[in-house]
Amino acid sequence: MIRKLALPLAAALIVSGCARTGEIEVDGGVGITAVRTACPIVGVPAGTGDVTLFDPPASRDAAAIDVTATITNVRVNCGDVGNDVVSTVTFDVQARRARTDAARTVALPYFIAIVRGGTNVTAKRIEQATLNFPAGEARASVQATATSVISRSAATLPQEVREQLTRRRRAGQEDAAIDPLSAPGVRAAVARATFEALVGFQLTDDQLRYNLTR
């Protein structure tokens, strides 16, 4: 249900002290090396990347569509601040309205939620994107930002798990073909240290239902 804007979980788990992001290492059958980062994976939950306002509000007829808006151009800047990992997510809200006779201001609420291990929402904050439509203009856009703060210690794998993931496995070894993530303890530790920063419109139940069923 989430459109990822970074490497999927399975591709971003191996920790390497020397590999660069996206680097492929072929060395005696070691295979692909990827870099895991403490920065959260950024994404937009399915069904929350656009919103439709109706006039009258209870109608769902195409002729009653008043304003439509979409979240696009999602970008992230992530870095260390003391003992925390701070990510600033920037995105554009692009909107279109049906009636253009007068100037109009439309405020659309959006959220940033921090999810740990794929299921546990640890924090959520709601803000507003304000769109200003000049008279005669059907389109408007605004840039919005949202910030997440995650403890670096929480996003860091324990040393013993790092060693299990990065230990070199040579062809012919008994466990060469065994995925270290198949071990329940390793998989659980990786999930606990994996965070997502999700942004989307703060929709009502009716708005979300409309997005998922139209």
Rank of each mutant, 00 (worst) to 15 (best):
I112F: 02
I114A: 13
V199A: 01
T156L: 04
T166K: 11
I126C: 07
A102N: 15
S141D: 10
L157W: 03
L165K: 00
P180R: 05
A191S: 07
G117Y: 15
T145W: 08
Q164T: 04
I150N: 04
A176N: 13
K124W: 04
P109G: 10
Q202T: 14
R162C: 01
P134V: 02
A138L: 04
V199G: 00
F133A: 00
E160S: 13
F195K: 00
I178L: 11
E174I: 04
T156P: 04
V199I: 12
E137P: 00
Q164L: 03
N120F: 11
D175F: 14
E160V: 09
R192D: 07
Q207E: 15
P134S: 13
A155C: 12
R187N: 09
T147M: 08
V190Q: 03
R99E: 15
P134I: 02
G172S: 11
Q159L: 12
Q143I: 15
A155R: 11
T105N: 13
R167W: 11
L208V: 06
Q128I: 08
L157N: 01
A154Q: 06
I126Q: 13
T130R: 14
P134F: 07
G200T: 05
P109T: 14
P134T: 02
R170Y: 14
F133H: 00
P180M: 02
A113W: 06
L165P: 05
A189F: 00
R99D: 15
D175K: 14
T130L: 05
R187Y: 08
L212R: 12
T156V: 07
A176W: 15
R209T: 07
L131G: 04
A171V: 15
R169G: 07
A191E: 08
E137T: 01
A113D: 15
A176M: 07
A144L: 08
P184L: 09
A113H: 04
F111M: 13
Q207A: 09
A103I: 13
P158M: 06
T100G: 04
V106W: 03
L181F: 09
